[in-house]
Simulated assay, not measured.
Amino acid sequence: MRTDLTRQRFHVLMTADAVGGVWSYAVDLAGGLVEAGVGVTLAVLGPDPSAAQAARAEAAGCRLVRTGLPLDWMATDPGAVTGAGEALARTARAVGADLVHLHSPAFAAAADFPVPVVAVCHSCVATWWAAAGTGPLPGDLAWRAELVARGCRRADALLAPCRAFADATARAYGLSRPPRAVHNGRRQLAPVLASVASPGTDPVPFAFTAGRLWDRAKNCAGLDRVAARTVLPVRAAGPVTGPNGERVRPVHLTVLGELDEAGIAAELSGRPIFVSLARYEPFGLAVLEAAQAGCALVLSDLPTFREVWADAALFVEADDADAVAGLLDGLAADPDRRARLGRAAQERAGRYTVAAATASVLDVFEALRAGPGIRAARQGAAA
């Protein structure tokens, strides 16, 4: 449903990254804003969206702009990121935006935006490195972290997908107060009938994961070790090679490649045990999709996962392959327990809707539009 531009409440320029989960977040939020009477221009940085992605964005009612600008984590130097921020500021002026919603604070580091800026801390190199790396932050990541720090101080409001990650972000960048926690919401994927299940029977059990398999923080290598020890098939959807050249070569997982929404829905329709052994996950939209489908959840014991899923998941040590394999095989043999866990996950997932996320983001937008006094408060700024 498209917003009537003559009647819209206000207009938001929102940036997006078509490579990972930020895309789902942005399109779902944009659709929620459009339904609330807000105009949205979605500016895509980095690789262009696929035809299916573009069609979904346009169906959500927003105007799609392919900028050709670099993503902060794929840029070759600081000037590329600050230049992208300046280009976005010009775009905000050109489209008559009343607010700017950035998917990374780094783009606010040096740009002179004409309107209030909300920056979302979906993830960042400093917190990622703390989970996935060792030793001091490498030079190629240090300048990126510095841009994020500067952007956090210049944005008018900061958001994060959960309290645990908001706190981690505040620690990483020395913020006097953490970003506002707004749990992500996800539109439920269209159901696809499971070909493996007959009416009245329990689906053939298997384990499933989805995400950027090439990202070392997703710990695909750890899940591959689990797959070598379990009798349960472990299926993995997602790219094994990243746009930055990083690559993973699993041996024991059944690698499905990149799946579109229909492909993911088809996998989830079999109600697999969804497993993530990630070492770093600010929220986890793939987990939410699995929970919406009624899958039992087995997740690494991260503060973010604990906050979001509480008692609706089983938590494991990511490096204990034997224990994880034993747990998965035990669940495969216990359909009643799987069903109980699936119902608990599905009930918990009911908290994380697009409507709830949209309402919280609209609260932030309206506060910033209320007057310069609120804007000057610089939510989340450092002392």
Rank of each mutant, 00 (worst) to 15 (best):
T6R: 12
H11M: 00
T15Q: 07
D17Q: 08
A26N: 05
A43R: 06
P47R: 03
D48T: 04
P49W: 00
S50D: 11
G61P: 13
V65D: 03
P70E: 05
G83Y: 11
H101D: 10
P114Q: 02
P116S: 06
V117Y: 05
A119S: 15
H122A: 09
T127S: 13
A131T: 07
A132F: 08
T134C: 01
P136T: 10
P138V: 10
E146V: 04
R153Y: 02
L158T: 08
A164G: 12
R171E: 15
G174C: 07
L175K: 06
P178S: 13
P179A: 09
P179G: 05
R187W: 03
P191E: 10
V196Q: 11
P199G: 03
A207R: 12
F208Y: 15
T209S: 13
R212D: 11
C220D: 03
A227D: 11
A227V: 12
T230Q: 12
P233G: 05
A237D: 06
T241S: 13
E246D: 11
P250W: 10
L259N: 08
A262V: 06
F274R: 01
Y280D: 06
E281F: 08
P282D: 07
F283M: 00
A291Q: 07
L297N: 00
D301F: 05
W309M: 04
W309D: 02
A312L: 01
D319G: 15
A321C: 13
A323W: 06
L327P: 10
D329P: 00
L331D: 09
P335D: 04
D336G: 12
L341K: 09
A349K: 11
T358N: 06
F365H: 15
G373W: 14
A376F: 02
A381S: 12
A382I: 09
A382H: 10
